[in-house]
């Protein structure tokens, strides 16, 4: 249990998707103009990461990895399908996003309206594929650890995007040099926020 909490907290603060690995930058920059939309996207990312990372964990450990097919019988034990990882992960992500979208539409129309256009966009958000690929590199012990890593990464992205959106709403009233307005200043602020998040580095959990 402590392991799960520690993985969760690490994923939010120390290995933050945006500030430590720059994943999901495209949507991070494009959708952070107002706090409302960024909250919507943030929740959608938490949701999809929390689902796709554990599913891809199962895929990796029971189908794609070296010797993962051993449960089918000894003949399959030597098969290594890991070169198919990228295409399988992206297929799972695209399929899950579609599925999640349909389920939410049925179960909770209000949530569907809030997330709205962001759900389909998420299929090509690098944070989602990145979450699965990092999960593959870290060699988690079981599916619960993978799930808590996925959720933690999602929460980290949520924090980052809501933070930058709040700053961008305020900075509209400041006298930023003209060529820096918009994109440039957003980059520099993100850098400064990243420096802030670096202070979490070295915390032992």
């Amino acid at each position: 249990m402590e392991d799960l909490v520690s993985i969760f907290v690490r994923a939010i603060f120390i290995d933050n998707m945006v500030f430590a690995y720059f994943l999901g930058m495209c949507s991070y920059l494009a959708v952070s103009r107002t706090v409302n939309t960024s909250v919507g996207l943030g929740f959608a990312v938490i949701f999809v990461l929390g689902i796709t990372v554990p599913i891809n964990y199962l895929l990796e450990n029971y189908i794609l990895g070296r010797g993962a097919l051993a449960w089918l019988g000894p003949r399959f034990a030597s098969i290594d399908l890991s070169f198919l990882t990228f295409i399988m992960f992206i297929a799972i992500i695209a399929a899950m996003v579609q599925l999640v979208e349909m389920i939410i539409e049925k179960v909770s129309p209000t949530l569907y309206n809030t997330l709205g256009i962001f759900l389909p966009l998420i299929a090509v958000n690098c944070a989602i594929l990145g979450g699965s690929l990092f999960m593959q590199e870290r060699n988690f012990m079981n599916i619960a650890e993978a799930a808590s890593f996925g959720l933690g990464s999602g929460v980290g992205f949520f924090l980052a995007i809501v933070g930058i959106a709040a700053i961008r709403e305020k900075i509209r009233y400041s006298a930023v040099p003209a060529p820096l307005r918009g994109l440039g200043i957003t980059f520099i602020i993100t850098g400064l926020m990243g420096i802030g998040f670096m202070s979490f580095m070295g915390i032992e959990l």
Binding site: F22, L180, T186, G194
Partner: peptide
């Protein structure tokens, strides 16, 4: 990592300073 962001920010600054049409 954070300096990568700031470097790109500065590149954007220089680029837009030279080409005023791009200013946001």
């Amino acid at each position: 990592p954070p300096m990568a962001l700031i470097t790109v920010g500065i590149i954007i600054w220089v680029h837009r300073h030279r080409d005023r049409n791009l200013v946001d």
